[in-house]
């Protein structure tokens, strides 16, 4: 089993050893981290956390648009760690997750992956 170390910055930098092959939500909840979640298939955004350092594979997620991904958001219910990672978790990490679409529209390259244009177009 490949193990990664996950640090939760906004929980006093608590660290957890997790299986690199398991979704982070399951690994962290199994070790007693109280995390919000909803659909558990990567579609509903409830479990979003902000990646401060490290790399994840979250190809299965369909909830985030490109702006949210660029802002570091990760859907924990489907994301697996590719390296040691540091996160902020919970709604305290959601400061950039939600935006008023009438106040702050997305650019075409900031849409979800299936409809976004590339930035140079």
């Amino acid at each position: 089993m490949t193990t990664r170390t996950i640090t939760i910055a906004n929980r006093g930098n608590a660290t957890y050893a997790v299986d690199a092959k398991k979704p982070l939500l399951d690994s962290l909840r199994d070790q007693g981290v109280d995390l919000p979640y909803g659909c558990k298939y990567g579609g509903c955004i409830t479990c979003a956390a902000k990646l401060i350092e490290g790399e994840v594979n979250q190809k299965a997620q369909v909830a985030l648009n490109n702006r949210q991904i660029n802002d570091g958001y990760v859907i924990l219910c489907v994301a697996r760690p590719l390296s040691d990672c540091t996160f902020d978790i919970g709604v305290e990490s959601h400061d950039r997750l939600y935006r008023n679409p009438f106040l702050d529209p997305l650019e075409p390259h900031e849409l979800k992956a299936d409809i976004a244009t590339t930035k140079d177009q």
Binding site: C39, C44, I45, N65, P101, L106, L111, K112, I115
Partner: peptide, 17 residues
């Protein structure tokens, strides 16, 4: 659900989502 649950991207209306 995968469109509306994460929140409302107004731009997705034009993409027939």
């Amino acid at each position: 659900p995968n469109t509306f649950m994460p929140g409302f991207d107004l731009e997705e209306v034009g993409h027939l989502k």
